[in-house]
């Protein structure tokens, strides 16, 4: 069972490495969206400093949405998904492996680059860690919830737009708590409560989302 889990992660990372442009597209999208905000709202440093966590979080949400469509699509198209459905490993485990690999490919780079983007917004340096940590805890939750949406919309026309409609409302708690962490840290309240809540959300989503996504995959591939 663990062999299959490791194998799926290894395979997805290998595929991403051999087609690295996909990874870069999501990352560049994230950077560009964040960079558009100062152009839209003006370069006032005080304003930028206030909106930085929110902007970075919303951009991370959108970037993660963008990557979601690919989570099961190619496996669905070439028949690998059928083999996963008929695999010896419980499907929830396979989905968990895929979600983890997906996060490493599309979520982790966002976490790593977020401090640089926050500096563009003149975000106080001492709180960069809280911001990055909130993203590190929050983006896996986005991938987990998103997996359910991606599985439900597999092979449907208008998949991308539909996927956003399904998934974005479910992202609300992560956005509120995630962006709240850095804001609370700046305002002197400390973001510990938010980070703990994000950790709780991660544990909750990690336990249940793969199974919901697995059920959705079985429904979608009938």
């Amino acid at each position: 069972m663990l062999a299959a889990f490791r194998c799926v992660i290894h395979r997805d990372l290998l595929l991403a490495a051999r087609r690295s442009s996909d990874v870069l597209t999501v990352l560049l999208f994230f950077v560009i969206v964040v960079s558009l905000f100062p152009l839209g709202v003006g370069p006032d440093p005080a304003l930028l400093r206030t909106i930085a966590p929110g902007v970075i979080w919303v951009a991370a949400l959108l970037a993660s949405m963008l990557a979601l469509q690919r989570m099961f699509a190619s496996d669905h198209a070439d028949g690998t998904l059928e083999q996963m459905l008929l695999g010896a490993t419980p499907l929830g485990m396979t989905v968990a492996a895929k979600v983890f690999a997906h996060w490493v490919i599309s979520g982790l780079p966002l976490v790593l680059i977020s401090p640089v983007l926050a500096l563009q917004f003149d975000f106080p340096q001492e709180f960069l860690g809280v911001l990055a940590l909130s993203l590190a805890l929050g983006t896996p939750v986005l991938s987990l919830i998103g997996a359910i949406g991606a599985a439900l919309t597999l092979g449907l026309r208008g998949g991308g737009a539909l996927l956003s409609l399904l998934v974005l409302p479910l992202y609300v708690p992560v956005l509120i708590i995630g962006a709240g962490a850095a804001e609370a840290a700046v305002s002197g309240l400390g973001g510990k409560a938010q980070l703990l809540l994000l950790g709780a959300l991660l544990a909750f989503a990690g336990a249940f989302a793969p199974w919901a996504a697995a059920a959705a995959l079985r429904i979608s591939s009938e």
């Binding site: 359910i148 919309t153 959705a216 979608s220």
Partner: peptide, 15 residues
């Protein structure tokens, strides 16, 4: 978005 009513029911239920 789903044409097959059975899939539509089940997918809607999961959501």
């Amino acid at each position: 978005a789903i044409d097959d009513p059975r899939r539509a029911d089940k997918a809607g239920a999961v959501l």
